[in-house]
Design a protein around this nucleic acid. Sequence first.
DNA 1: TAGGGTTGTTGAAACGTTCTAACTCCGTCG
DNA 2: CGACGGAGTTAGAACGTTTCAACAACCCTA
Lengths: 351, 351
Amino acid sequence: MSRTLDEPIAGPARLRDVAERAGVSIALVSSYINNPHKVGGRSAAKIEEAIAFLGFIPNDAARQLRRGVSRMIAFVAFDVGDAFFASVSRGAQRRAAEEGLSLVLADSNGKRSTEREYLTLFGEQRVRGLLLAPVAEPSSYLDEVGLRQTRVVFIDQPAPSQRYGSVSINDVLGGRLAAAHLLELGRRRIAYIGGPASIRQVADRLRGARDAVREVPGARLEVFDTQDRDTPAGRDVAYAICRRDPRDRPDGIFCVNDNIAAGVLQVLLRHPDIRVPRDIAVVGYNDIAADAASVIPLTSIKQPHEAFGRTAVDLLLEEFVASEQASRRQVVFDPELVIRESTAGDAGAVP
Amino acid sequence: MSRTLDEPIAGPARLRDVAERAGVSIALVSSYINNPHKVGGRSAAKIEEAIAFLGFIPNDAARQLRRGVSRMIAFVAFDVGDAFFASVSRGAQRRAAEEGLSLVLADSNGKRSTEREYLTLFGEQRVRGLLLAPVAEPSSYLDEVGLRQTRVVFIDQPAPSQRYGSVSINDVLGGRLAAAHLLELGRRRIAYIGGPASIRQVADRLRGARDAVREVPGARLEVFDTQDRDTPAGRDVAYAICRRDPRDRPDGIFCVNDNIAAGVLQVLLRHPDIRVPRDIAVVGYNDIAADAASVIPLTSIKQPHEAFGRTAVDLLLEEFVASEQASRRQVVFDPELVIRESTAGDAGAVP
DNA sequence: TAGGGTTGTTGAAACGTTCTAACTCCGTCG
DNA sequence: CGACGGAGTTAGAACGTTTCAACAACCCTA
């Protein structure tokens, strides 16, 4: 059963192998690993040598089985590659690292079945906490999946019940800020590009814009409903706008995200008779296009990405110590307007 | 010690709780979970009921400790949000799921220390396999980190030794394809935009382009070295090109990636005297901008993203069954040219 | 009816840690 | 000089699962 010092070690080295080589007890090695200073100098040196020699790596399964708790938290999102989630996860990861927790990511790919598989996996792993940006309205299956004692925080989505925390962004306010900015610039024919309205973020931003427009006499809001929210969708709408008689064109456009805004700008900027922002001002949303997609810097609504992720982990940490029944915090961030040349200043010509 | 049927269960239900409630042995429950059909109908029904009632979820730590092997594989990349890695991971994930393995992602954020922490984590977790897109030249620390028996496959990077497999892309060929395409169109003043040359991909693509240009008499290659490889970098170079006398401008531009190409296009398309591709043809690399960043569809070099990820997992699977010392497969994909309007056809005017 | 399969079920021993309580030295204090 | 305390160390019992050998009950065939 027990391996001797002479024969080569088959699997990876265990605590017991280290103990044998160092000539001390297993318990002492364990205690050295967890509290090095609690172990006497001579033993420490021998243990150190044995660990290095054997390349000992603790077996997390055994450790976790015994301890009953893991040091891992997971972030399950429907599109990990998305710029927003990518930077949220970065913030979360940093905060987690500060607490000695590791954050792993899982991409549910927009599929409920995949999401469920991952929730099951992490349930079985007994991860300490879970950040969830769900594919759709999360039904009851959080319970079924072994996450009863795992704390869950919802990302960019109000939690389905008070039993879970959430971190989200006030999209109504964001929509209001964007529209109000255009109105302040004197624009009265506002267009909203985005869709479908079934997406909460899309609907909320529209609502905020509508509220702002309603408060200004003489202003009107035209809604361009799109199926997708990508750059081509923006281009399509912009082409339609270009085809109109100049007097019928909007003089201010608010796009539900920066991708659409980029498409709109690409088309408008190539039109010989239209100048941005003189004739049409454009506002985006998310502030991801800052350095990326457009020739002239895009005015946009900035969401607190990193802070968002950090706060999500903060909520988890709170919940680790809170009682089972305590109701969870629902944190809502306020977005802010970042003004750039697509609404203010000259449309830069080619120098 | 043992919990009775009456008192509420404190922690999550264990196999033992299920067994007690169903009135059978622990072993039978275990065997039901792993091979339901091996268990008699009456017991099966009772176990089923007990599992549902108690909400039993197997404890993966215990299972893994006993089994000695995990069903998890990990993908550690220096930027999980990057479009390329995002779709590679999607492919890997699908393939892994087919084999009943779960893929989790970890973002090393371009930092060696973070990368190392994750490698340690997954080493301790004894993950079955690891896909690694390393921050820098991977030194020896793969051994130190407990991955001795974990199979490792390098992503988009030749493996540092024959002991590891790798999946990468023939960037020299990609560069050659791009330049050859421009040359075939009759372009002779070719520009290469990209940098720094210390990045292998950048250097390889340049090398390929240089080879192709050298084979055509009268053709020359001008290199614009950039620090970054993003859209603003492309715009900067394009501005410089626009400022030149028309006769000194390149008539074909090959960009080291689509982001740079997008920036170049944005600027060129707004210039009154330049038409794309008539005056200047533009080729990108990666084929991610297909739907995203530019008004006219971009000719690009397409890398096999999903297949790439799938193959990486295939290599892992092979290595699971191969002997420890067997040398690993190094798979190199050939990229292909996708011709679109930025080099062929009309530059679409606003309709 | 005895013997030999099947089929279904079980007890107990692992797996590699952590943790508690107890033990052994030593030096110090009363 | 004996009791006390602290530092260092250890044996052994968990943690929740899987697996293996063995057992029980049954049906079938000889």
